[in-house]
Nucleic acid binder design. Structure first.
Length: 619
RNA sequence: GCCGGUGUAGCUCAGCGGUAGAGCAACUGAUUCGUAAUCAGUAGGUCGUCGGUUCAAGUCCGACCAUCGGCUCCA
């Protein structure tokens, strides 16, 4: 068994020292560094002062630090543009160079109110009303101050004018509520040293290099077509090939884990969504209904009602439980214009959805099985570091106390038995049941929530699901929803960014590309292609007629794991000269050796070919 | 949906009132070549869409669509 499938404990927290490919500079997060916190806090004040100097009509609101910098929200009659950032930045440098002191002053509520009123800053007044004593403000030089709890640097001389940058302007709502005034937010980043700033920018570049939208075009994996509409994904042959491999692996793992697979319709009579309750609490995320004959149909935003109907299609016995049904179900959800994002946020996507119907005393065992399967599937894509969250009963919820307690205890016990660290989000569960969410960490330290396990006391109730218990009575089963990838599209995007497009051998859409050096060897290349294809290896011959250097360049740009150079020497000896994307030139091997190792790699879902010792062929 | 940016050939971009340009890719020809770009030629765009201003609009204005960075929301 390959090492990557061994069980590994989940890490309880995100690591900020994430592997930043080739870098040794540590970038502390704000929450890890008192000095950075001061710097960023003060930077936002400096920025606000600069903005008010350049835009006197701009009113200040709030300006907190973030993990990599800071922002400040303004209410300004004139819109800020990216070009304005340059001027603001220059003004900030001027302020920094004046080495202005930042002084903490504790004031009475009345004095704070008087000072704010003198400046006509209505947002500050609102903030004041919401805070408790002691009320503090920080001055910045003689003319500027802001209501703030601190802490700050002693004077702006402690701020490094070479270690900050203003990054973007964005809209934001006062207090985060879209019913409130629209404010303008300026984001900045600030560090102790110019080197840290450079490293931060290098990481941003790295994220850009890994962007799945970029790679989707470059590697010809998928596209989103204007003509068809936003948020609808077209899987190109290469992307579709990968998706099929992912799905095949997923199906295999599910059958092995005791699941059966379902196929259910994409639309259904709208009454189904009335029964399920989605029409009441989910309709704003649903596509509108469509009229068919005398009935109204609804495109599905979720698969669960279909699985529930399948359950209810006949009488169930307690002996049948647990029932585990999974489906790669494509759902459509209405997303507001402006929120779509590559594969990460779309309007049509496929969930790897499953529902487990079980007895109350089976909860723990079923959750544990799901955790095991989740780990097996995620680690196959090299996601081995998790952050787990358990969400408990919210105030507004349905169901009996005893059921909630039993279910929550079941989730806790499963996590304990799995040995996974987790945090508890008290009251963060859905109204219909507690849940476990799992985030995965990618190669550059970002966390992504994909998997979710939710208990549901609502749907079995609404659809009056039953089973016949041992004593002949009718009982209600427990229902568990779970998804591991969450959305196949989104997972594909995350995975693409995680690998930066350098997919492991088993997953690569094109595994081996044969590069004929001259026209004379094309027939041999074709013959070899036949052998590779017959052995289930995804291969092609590059017939562009370019010179070898170009063929290799093109192959490398397409991130093909194995390039096989075929010249006269190779054709004579039935061999290939292999070049691996990961390990470079591997030297010559008999064709049979390539076949054998590629087949083995596919079978083992290996990241790369493993070849026996180099064989010298030819002259 | 909201704020700001962007939309010119398949891709990356230049042109910013006066009859559309480059590099790469594609195609054709020559070259038959040994580990990240051989040379030459050809073709390709109603400049996102619709409307307006103007003698004249990729170029100015408006609306819409898409997209990028955010907000809100979320798989």
């Amino acid at each position: 068994m390959p090492q990557r499938r061994l069980p590994m404990p989940a890490s309880a927290s995100a690591s900020s020292t994430a592997p930043a490919a080739g870098s040794t500079i540590h970038l502390p997060r704000t929450s890890e560094s008192e000095q950075l916190l001061r710097i960023r806090h003060s930077m936002s004040h400096v920025m606000a002062m600069a903005v008010q100097k350049l835009f006197p009509r701009a009113q200040v609101t709030i300006g907190p630090w973030t993990e990599t910098g800071f922002y400040y929200d303004f209410d300004s009659p004139e819109p800020f543009t990216e070009a304005d950032l340059k001027a603001i930045r220059k003004e900030m440098i001027r302020i920094i160079n004046r080495k202005l002191p930042l002084e903490r002053i504790e004031v009475s509520r009345a004095e704070a109110e008087a000072r704010i009123k003198a400046q006509n800053e209505p947002y500050k007044l609102e903030i004041l009303a919401g805070i408790t004593e002691p009320i503090t403000l920080y001055t910045l030089g003689e003319d500027w101050w802001d209501l703030c709890a601190g802490p700050h640097v002693a004077h702006t001389g402690e701020l490094n004018p070479q270690a900050f940058e203003l990054e973007s302007v964005a809209g934001a709502y006062w207090r985060g509520d879209e019913k409130n005034a629209q404010l303008q937010r300026i984001y900045g980043t600030a560090w102790e040293t110019a080197e840290q700033l450079a490293e931060h920018q290098r990481r941003k570049q790295e994220a850009l290099r890994r962007d799945h939208r970029r790679l989707g075009v470059d590697l010809d994996l998928f596209s989103i077509e204007d003509e068809a509409g936003a948020g609808l994904v077209f899987w190109h042959p290469r992307g579709a090939r990968m998706r099929l491999l992912i799905e095949d692996f997923w199906r295999q793992a599910h059958f092995a884990a005791g699941y059966e697979l379902l196929y259910t319709p994409h639309v259904a009579d709208i009454s189904l969504w009335q029964t399920s309750g989605h029409l009441d609490f989910y309709s704003e995320s649903m596509f509108g209904p469509m009229q068919v004959d005398e009935r109204q149909f609804q495109l599905k935003p979720m698969n669960c009602p279909f699985h529930v109907l399948t359950y209810a299609s006949r009488l169930r016995s307690y002996r049948e439980l647990p029932i585990r049904w999974a489906e790669l179900g494509t759902v459509y959800r209405y997303e507001r214009p402006g929120v779509m994002h590559g594969l990460m946020r779309v309007r049509g996507f496929t969930q790897d959805d499953a529902h487990v119907f079980c007895l109350p005393d089976q909860i723990t065992a079923e959750i544990l099985r799901i955790l095991d399967l989740t780990e097996e599937i995620l680690s196959a894509f090299d996601f081995r570091s998790y952050e787990i969250n358990l969400s408990t009963r919210p105030e507004k919820s349905i169901g009996e106390d005893a059921v909630w307690e039993l279910a929550t205890a079941g989730l806790v016990e499963a996590l304990e038995r799995k040995g996974w660290a987790y945090t508890i989000d008290e009251g963060g569960g859905a109204f219909y049941g507690p849940k476990i969410d799992l985030k995965i960490e990618d190669a550059i330290g970002r966390m992504w929530q994909c998997s979710t396990i939710q208990l549901d006391f609502n749907l079995p109730e609404r659809f009056e699901l039953e089973y016949v218990a041992a004593d002949g009575s009718r009982q209600r089963p427990i229902m568990i929803h779970r998804a591991i990838f969450g959305s196949l599209e989104r997972f594909f995007g995350i995975m693409t960014e995680n690998y930066a497009g350098d997919f492991p051998f088993w997953l690569a859409p094109e595994q081996v590309r044969l590069l004929p050096v001259t026209d004379e060897v094309r027939p041999f290349a074709e013959e070899m292609l036949g052998q590779l294809s017959a052995a289930g290896i995804r291969a092609s011959v590059d017939h562009s007629g370019d010179r070898l250097g170009k063929l290799i360049r093109t192959g490398e740009q397409m991130k093909i794991p194995v390039l096989a150079v075929i010249g006269a020497r190779e054709a004579e000896t039935a061999s290939v000269s292999l070049r691996s994307r990961r390990d470079g030139d591997l030297g010559s091997r008999p064709v049979a050796a390539l076949l054998e190792s590629a087949q083995r790699a596919n079978r083992d879902r290996a990241p790369a070919l493993e070849l026996a010792g180099r064989v010298e062929v030819g002259a």
